[in-house]
Write a protein that binds this DNA or RNA. Structure first.
Length: 960
RNA sequence: AGGACUAUAGCUCAGUUGGUUAGAGCGCUACCUUGACAUGGUAGAGGUCGGCAGUUCGAAUCUGCCUAGUCCUACCA
């Protein structure tokens, strides 16, 4: 074995072996356990969040696989409608071709081509992360089977009356030319203006103050072209006489009514609001209440129309309203139109004033442009009814969120859920299975033939399929069951659904988790007709952030590719990677500077296991995960520690040639034979059981950080720091018996072998690599650690006596080391040690552990004094009541020792005062549980005794 | 506006049902190439647990208020 841990030498080949041998597929035996990977966006590449996610899921999957479950982890991607279409359009754009030049079919073919080329990125990343997904069951939302499922779901929902089509205001993206759902709109704080406009009253009416106009305030003056009313509060005394009268809308000269509606806030502005039902969601509601016409003045690019389009609130065309618009603005972009309209108001002396105003601007999360409420025909899922059982499933615990607090977030959204706009004006996606006849009547069916036969439509009727496609999240919502073969009732569906746990970030609880729950409960039923949940647990993890705590995003240029932490990357390559293909190239310089500052040396290579272990150790209950390179380096070092511990074990249990290759095994008890376990052996075996307990508990509670910590502490602080050291005096003792040697060798290999299995779910590669060589020495056989049983606690092997004895031993050794350290005695120097005030237990422990003491504390001699012996002047450490003495002669400076004692005495004085104070408080003694009081009494007694001893010692030395 | 979450060592974070001398890793200081490991070892320094009140014999832990930060939802035109 190499002297240091070299991850690259072992990772790739093990993954290939595992995959080739089919270890990732379900075993077909045992209780089913399944996880569906949250499908990454096929256009993209995995970022740190995915890396984190994968580390968690793979740990769970490997853990359950080792526990003998019939384990399925199914991978796949979603087609990411808008994002993918954008990427391919941009590529075509670079060649001067638009998708319209190509036509729909050819364009979709281009997307498939592109997907073939780039789809390998993600699968390669998943492999490099060590994820043991069943590649044979990889799925893609646009695959035939899943497309079937989408169609089926749409048709059934429509039949159930849960999907409808209607003309509504939607969030329109004027750049991408599609509707998007509420969730895809980001409301961003921006600075804007509030324009106060004068709207002249018709028919000579005047306000209470005698003005001939009303003042409305607006952040979007250009929409005034579509105003269909002005509203005041019904109880607003200022405007009582004007309700029912009319306004002459400036520039347009349309007469519009003054209505009363309690939507209006009297305190805000002038208490008068312009109502534009076709261009504002609130105004739309007001319009509905007052039966106002919907006057659309914008086209799909959000430019001003030459003539308005007018509808009634029920969506029918309105022919009563004059559609004339001023010619000056026709074809102008909304922002240009805004400027000119404001100028026109000013010129007409109708501009009262302009105030600065902070507002939230709705922007498309993909395009970044301002979203326009726009009147269109769209398909909707009525969510209220679907939400009911989805809420219940969480209320009654069929689905549990971990941590639980996320249930509140879920409930609050579900209880106020809005209908979901599922149609998108895109080409890439599942085309809506709806057809129209020439009269515009709509028919829904699985295909045109079904529609014709169902509605008795002869060939003379021409049918045209809806051009639109479905929201990607619609297909993702079916993910847990569509990927298992639904609508067929496949064996896979019966076996692996409900899945066990969904692992995801809280940012997509609404987008995905909630919708999956609604859809699954609706479509998937048990034999008794009760609905099936998509998953029993939702493990919600935090978002991975950079070291500054900022969210990682491409536009900020602070993203990290998990592979770059695994393999390492030079500074230049990292800068290049972060600044390539930017949506906003002007940020490149800033990103470059920032990158050079944060990673002046680039990024070192840490290997997959260290990365995964780091992710696990960060998986506590918080919402943010600040990724800390220092922490990962620490865990890389941990891998090295394991590596070297294994080297040591192998050196002492194998027969090795000059190069360290194995040429035979020493007797580790693999073939039986008498075995004598030392105290240290019994101790480490006991500690191993406790570690197994902790890890088991932590996995059960999704506390991967605690599992990682328990493993780390056991392996480093107990096995390496103490046990390996304690094994040396036995292994190197020429007088050791065969049974003793066999016992220690057996414990060395068995504990290591078990620890490897314990750690394997989190660190698959290093554990496999070492296990291959350790297993035979531990009497284990098998092709891979992956399918070995996960360690089970054996409570009988917990040995409290051994633990107490080793604690004593550690106390003595640390005490001596402390004197050495503080007194500057060279570690190389052999020193004598004496024990005074020795109890029977101490006597036994000294006798049993003399050789350990000598070796680990590097002692010249170990002497237990009897009551009659006179102790030489010494530096002293207390272990319980026993005094550990290091004679001062020639070694220790008087003043240094006094200072050291004084420090100890100060500590003890404080302790005595603190505990004594507590015990002097009668209400404490009266009210606290007896055990607690007894504990405090013992504490006080110990501290007082220790203080006395040390004080006496101090006086003795001081007197010299 | 409503709600959630967070605040513990210089940094990144643990801390189970209230009872610890409040822990870990990194960083820092001193010493050490001892036959697994310098990606290491030994010893050590470092914390008024955001602030203020309260409940309690006892609070990092429970309650209220405040401050700071993060986020979500809704929104005043």
């Amino acid at each position: 074995m190499d002297k240091t841990y070299q991850p690259h030498a072992i990772e790739r080949s093990w993954y290939q072996t595992w995959e080739k041998k089919g270890y990732f597929a379900p075993s077909g035996e045992g209780t089913p356990y399944s996880i569906m990977i949250p499908p990454p966006n096929v256009t993209g590449s995995l970022h740190m969040g995915h890396g984190f996610n994968n580390a968690i899921m793979d740990s769970l999957i490997r853990y359950h696989r080792m526990k003998g479950h019939n384990t399925l982890w199914q991978p796949g991607c979603d087609h990411a409608g808008i994002a993918t279409q954008m990427v391919v359009e941009r590529q075509l754009g670079a060649q001067g071709v638009s998708r319209h030049d190509l036509g729909r079919d050819a364009f979709i073919e281009k997307i498939w081509e592109w997907k073939e080329q780039s789809g390998g990125t993600i699968t390669n990343q998943i492999r490099r992360l060590g994820s043991s997904v069943d590649w044979s069951r990889e799925r893609f939302t646009m695959d035939e089977g899943l497309s079937e499922a989408v169609k089926e779901a749409f048709v059934r929902l429509h039949e159930d009356g849960l999907i409808y089509r209607g003309k509504r205001l939607v969030n329109w993206d004027p750049k991408l030319h599609t509707a998007i759902s509420d969730l895809e709109v980001e409301n961003i704080d921006e600075k804007g203006f509030l324009w106060h406009l004068r709207y002249p009253l018709a028919d000579g009416a005047t306000t209470a103050d005698g003005d001939t106009y009303l003042i409305v305030a607006t952040t979007r003056p250009e929409t005034m072209l579509g105003d269909s009313a002005v509203a005041v509060h019904p109880e607003d005394e200022r405007y009582q006489n004007l309700i029912g009268k009319e306004i002459i809308l400036p520039l347009v000269n349309r007469r519009i009514p003054i209505v009363a509606d309690d939507y209006v806030d009297r305190e805000f502005g002038t208490g008068v609001v312009k109502i534009t039902p076709a261009h504002d969601f609130n105004d739309y509601e007001v319009g509905k209440r007052h039966n106002l016409p919907l006057i659309n003045v914008l086209d799909r690019d959000a430019a001003i129309l030459a003539t308005a389009q007018v509808f009634n609130v029920d969506g029918t065309a309105n022919n009563d309203v004059d559609t004339t618009l001023p010619e000056a603005y026709a074809g102008l972009d909304r922002f240009e139109a805004r400027k000119q309209i404001v100028a026109a108001f000013e010129a007409a002396n109708l501009l009262e004033k302009i105030d600065d105003h902070a507002l939230k601007t709705p922007r498309g999360d993909r395009s970044g442009v301002v979203i326009e409420p726009w009147l269109t025909d769209q398909w909707y899922v009525s969510a209220k009814e679907l939400a009911k059982p989805a809420i219940e499933a969480v209320e009654n615990g069929d689905i549990q969120f971990v941590p639980k607090q996320y249930e509140n977030m879920y409930f609050s959204w579900m209880r106020d859920i809005q209908d979901w706009c599922i149609s998108r004006q895109l080409w890439w996606g599942h085309r809506i299975p709806a057809w129209y006849d020439d009269a515009g009547k709509v028919y829904v069916g699985r295909d045109e033939a079904e529609v014709r036969s169902k509605h008795n439509l002869g060939d003379e009727v021409t049918l045209r399929q809806d051009d639109d496609v479905l929201d990607t999240w619609f297909s993702s919502a079916l993910w847990t069951f569509s990927t298992l073969g639904w609508p067929q009732n496949t064996d896979a569906l019966k076996t692996f659904h409900s899945t066990d746990v969904l692992v995801t970030g809280f940012d997509i609880i609404f987008f995905w988790v909630a919708r999956m729950i609604m859809m699954t409960l609706h479509f998937i039923k048990n034999d008794d007709g009760t609905p099936q949940v998509p998953f029993k647990y939702v493990y919600v993890h935090g978002l991975v952030r950079d070291s500054q705590g900022h969210k990682m995003s491409k536009s900020k240029g602070n993203v990290l590719d998990p592979l770059d932490l695994i393999d390492g990357i030079g500074l230049e390559a990292l800068v290049e990677k972060r600044t390539a293909n930017m949506m906003q190239p002007q940020l490149a310089a800033k990103i470059e500077k920032q990158t050079r500052k944060e990673f002046p040396e680039g990024i070192a290579s840490y290997g997959t296991d260290a990365l995964r272990f780091t992710f696990c150790s960060l998986a506590s209950t918080g919402r943010d995960i600040k990724f800390d390179m220092g922490r990962m380096e620490g865990y890389r070092n941990f891998c090295n520690k394991i590596w070297n511990a294994a080297r040591y074990v192998l050196m002492n249990t194998e027969q090795q040639d000059e190069q360290g290759s194995c040429i035979g095994a020493l007797d580790c008890g693999q073939n039986g034979g008498e075995v004598e376990l030392s105290l240290a052996d019994r101790w480490i075996i006991s500690r191993l059981q406790r570690t197994e307990q902790q890890v088991e508990k932590a996995f059960g509670e999704f506390r991967f950080d605690l599992a990682a910590q328990a493993l780390f502490e056991f392996i480093w602080n107990e096995y390496c720091d103490w046990y390996l050291e304690l094994s040396k005096p036995v292994l190197w003792d020429e007088n050791a018996t065969e049974a003793q040697l066999r016992g220690t060798r057996r414990t060395l290999v068995r504990v290591l072998e078990t620890a490897l299995r314990l750690a394997h779910p989190m660190m698959p590669y290093i554990t496999e690599e070492i296990w291959q060589r350790i297993a035979p020495l531990a009497g284990k056989s098998g092709d891979t650690i992956m399918t070995q049983p996960y360690p089970l606690v054996n409570a009988e092997r917990i040995d409290a006596q051994a633990e107490a004895d080793i604690e004593w031993l550690k106390g003595v050794i640390v005490g001596i080391r402390n004197i050495r350290g503080e007194m500057n005695i060279s570690p190389a120097k052999h020193i004598p040690v004496l024990f005074e005030h020795v109890s029977d237990d101490d006597q036994r422990r000294i006798a049993e552990n003399a050789r350990f003491l000598r070796k680990l504390a590097n002692l010249e001699s170990v002497t237990a004094l009897t009551a009659d012996d006179e102790a030489p002047l010494s530096a002293v450490q207390l272990v319980g009541e026993m005094k550990v003495l290091v004679p001062m002669a020639g070694l220790i400076d008087k003043d240094a020792e006094l200072a050291r004692l004084q420090k100890e005495l100060d500590k003890l004085t404080k302790e005595v005062a603190r505990v004594g104070g507590k015990l002097n408080n009668p209400s404490f003694v009266d009210k606290a549980p007896e055990a607690v009081v007894a504990k405090e009494r013992a504490k006080l007694e110990d501290a007082e005794k220790a203080k006395q001893e040390l004080q006496a010692q101090y006086d003795k030395i001081a007197a010299l």
